[in-house]
Design a protein around this nucleic acid. Sequence first.
DNA 1: GATGAATGAGTATTCATTCAT
DNA 2: TATGAATGAATACTCATTCAT
Lengths: 200, 200, 200, 200
Amino acid sequence: MTEIRQPIKRTSIEKKQKIINAGLQVFSEKGYYNTTTAEIAQIAGVSTGIVYNYFKDKKDILLQALQVCFENTFKPILNALNQCDFRCDFEGSIRKFVLICLQAHNTENKFAHREIMGMCMLDQDAGALLNQKENNVINAIIKALSDNGITAPNITAKIKILYHIIRDFCHTAIFENHSENYINTVLNEILEIAKNMFFS
Amino acid sequence: MTEIRQPIKRTSIEKKQKIINAGLQVFSEKGYYNTTTAEIAQIAGVSTGIVYNYFKDKKDILLQALQVCFENTFKPILNALNQCDFRCDFEGSIRKFVLICLQAHNTENKFAHREIMGMCMLDQDAGALLNQKENNVINAIIKALSDNGITAPNITAKIKILYHIIRDFCHTAIFENHSENYINTVLNEILEIAKNMFFS
Amino acid sequence: MTEIRQPIKRTSIEKKQKIINAGLQVFSEKGYYNTTTAEIAQIAGVSTGIVYNYFKDKKDILLQALQVCFENTFKPILNALNQCDFRCDFEGSIRKFVLICLQAHNTENKFAHREIMGMCMLDQDAGALLNQKENNVINAIIKALSDNGITAPNITAKIKILYHIIRDFCHTAIFENHSENYINTVLNEILEIAKNMFFS
Amino acid sequence: MTEIRQPIKRTSIEKKQKIINAGLQVFSEKGYYNTTTAEIAQIAGVSTGIVYNYFKDKKDILLQALQVCFENTFKPILNALNQCDFRCDFEGSIRKFVLICLQAHNTENKFAHREIMGMCMLDQDAGALLNQKENNVINAIIKALSDNGITAPNITAKIKILYHIIRDFCHTAIFENHSENYINTVLNEILEIAKNMFFS
DNA sequence: GATGAATGAGTATTCATTCAT
DNA sequence: TATGAATGAATACTCATTCAT
């Protein structure tokens, strides 16, 4: 019953980081269930034993990898909201925001989306993690609009729908291979929906 | 390497059906990865060996179970499309359609949604199965609208977005617990989007 | 969570027996803690997996092996008590009884005494098993004497002491290497103690 | 392969002592096989590495802990022998001796008897250690009697039997929970045996 | 077709011991 | 001396799949 250590030394922190990265990589390539802890350790360049100094068990690696992964994805999205001037240029701001979302998803290619989303559906803890992050974004969007004086009846419902549309758009754009032309078409449809939500 | 038989005798067909149903049940209760084939056989009331007469391997049970599951979910949805008179009462038809979708998802409670969706993300074959069924529905919607003389630019993009909105609506309504009031609010927002798509 | 089966078919019963015998053998040769389940299976000539059809876990093999072992040791001892005529020839009967105990311990050489006794000290379940068997013998001795009209004050205390003396005698005779001469000397001392207990 | 040091500095000696005490404590609480060296080090308040400066391996801790433990148990017993005047008051002396044995066993509660005895049966080295100490006591008893002019034929055999009786008495008194009344009964039976050995 | 006993490769996790600092 | 992070061999137990009956 070894207790889990929080690494303090620089080298230890790096080691833990390497394990997380290795996890991200292999889980995304082969899937969580097809990956052994020995494999992760090997790719991280550490011994199998040390993994259990920093992680409670295999799933703990997944959760911490997801944490990092979500951080990378959602941070630029949240940042983008602060720089959008929805009041002056609503359509342009939304367009810019969607494109940043798209980019954030593309950057995060280390961990295949399907695997992430799949594990978040299958595993309660992983799902809860994602849920919390998504709620943060939804709330941030509502606040950003409100700060810009933009409002509408049933705004929460509206934003949730909008968020899901954008998320599906990003996932589709990554999963399937679409022409830039088609991507733009979809983007324009989304903008139309957004405009109608607040200015119809 | 026993060859997989297609059962012909009535009792054999029933036996295969029982295995599929047992699979649906246990996968949904405990998840694919936490279920053993022996367990499925036991619940189906057959021997473990016989499973491999009808199914190539464990995943084959999953795929055939998904097949059945999708059949149950999508058939009423496809049927609904034929009975909608989008021309006379567009809004009413969409509303009716969404409600039928909602009902179809609720009926299919045998197999937990999260588990289905999760496996469809993690496993390519399962994913392909779902994709094909969803495309059928999307195409059917387009055709139904077109048969009713309703059209718009970029109709495929529009319908895909609409389909995703409705799907997310159904899943959210099942996963989370919302008041009937809120459900109605969201439903109205969806109808608004749909109307704007074709009549703005 | 496979359930433990009680083998019914002749071949299965033999298989379970072979595993127990293999356990007896290897535990006694190498000790419980230095033995792997794979080793037991190999010596039993079965696969590692089948072990867990018949035994809950590794310790379950030990306990069932001990059960068999105790059966072999204590049955002849209990039988002997029925054939002793303590009334007519007390000394001769006790002598005969002790020699049968000695023989029973020697026969049971399959499972080293030290290992048995050690595990019975370290493990509560194993200890309880031994305790129960030993109490059976102690009670049987008391009954045999009583049936022969032989009694004394504090008979339970007396018999427990006597039993321990005989047990230690058997163990010493097996553990250490003594001359037959010395063995006889000790035996005579024991007889003297026994006689004094009831006829002084 | 660090060489084992004999600590010279006071602090080092104390450190080694702390490890031994920690070993005694945890082995007795959880058993040798359920204890990790890291645990011992932690309880001793030292680093895991330092343990291997003073001890060859885990078993070496056990052996030195046993050494200490036996010292504590047998020293008062050996001392008692010097103060017994078997010549003047044989029965009283024996009684006193047995009571001191009982007390010595009770004092040594740091290290559970079952664990000690079990390990001495399972492990040859531990067993040899115990054996040597017990032989010392047996020889000391013989000498004490002889110094008091008390002798008998086959005295070695007699004393060994007596020693085992007393040992079993002490262990039983600790393992099982008996009334003081019963304890006294057994003690009297033992005294009777002892008297008969030398004065019948 | 049907059974369920048997197989054995596969894996997460532990822990005595070492070693860089 | 002292630390405690790192090592990696070792192992109980599982389970998809096969096969003798």
